[in-house]
Amino acid sequence: MAAVIWAAFHWAPLAAGFKGESSRILFFHVPMAWVSFVAFMTAGVQSARYLFGSRTPQDAQLDRSAAAAVEIGLVFATLATVTGAIWARIMWGSYWNWDPRQSGIVVVLLYYAAYEALRQAIADEEVRARLSAAYGVLGLVVSPFLYFVLPRLGFSLHPEPVINAQGKMEVEARMLTVLLASSSGFTVLFYWMHSLRCRLGAIAARRLEEEN
């Protein structure tokens, strides 16, 4: 990660058509958006495993894993929104432009914030796990519309995603190297944070059990 940060500022060239050094934010903004996607998909898959898998004592672990993925996903989605807004201020002149892609990520944020609200509203552990898992799986169904369909409605100023609709890569080789390294680094960071959060959740659950 340290190498990626150094490379992002010193090794990778600047992108053409971007103001000043603003294109460097790309090496953090894109991986953050990517990790939020990975996190929410992980939450959806763990929720599906909880709902449709056979009942085992490890079920509570799956529930904690889905909840942890959503929590971390929310952090990364917020960071992606903030870095995107900073970049938009430099390039487009204002932090918020209601660009379809900006709106898309805000709705994703709202969806998973609602997931957290749902968890808070249910006291019983088993009921909470079951209902939030159902909402998590519904996220798998709805989020493709939020990530891919909503941004297509209306004209977007947002630069083409790295791999665009024509399947062409339009990035200079050194930039692509840093971008891919950064994305992998952030993905590993996500799984590390996720495993820490899950272990913490397991310890808290065990303590609660011992107290009762």
């Binding site: 609602a114 997931y115 749902l118 519904l138 709805v142 519309f145 369909v149 909503l150 409605l153």
Partner: peptide, 13 residues
């Protein structure tokens, strides 16, 4: 809280 984000893409479409 939980229905609006689900319905938003449908509404936009």
């Amino acid at each position: 809280v939980i229905a609006l984000p689900v319905l938003l893409p449908a509404l936009a479409l």
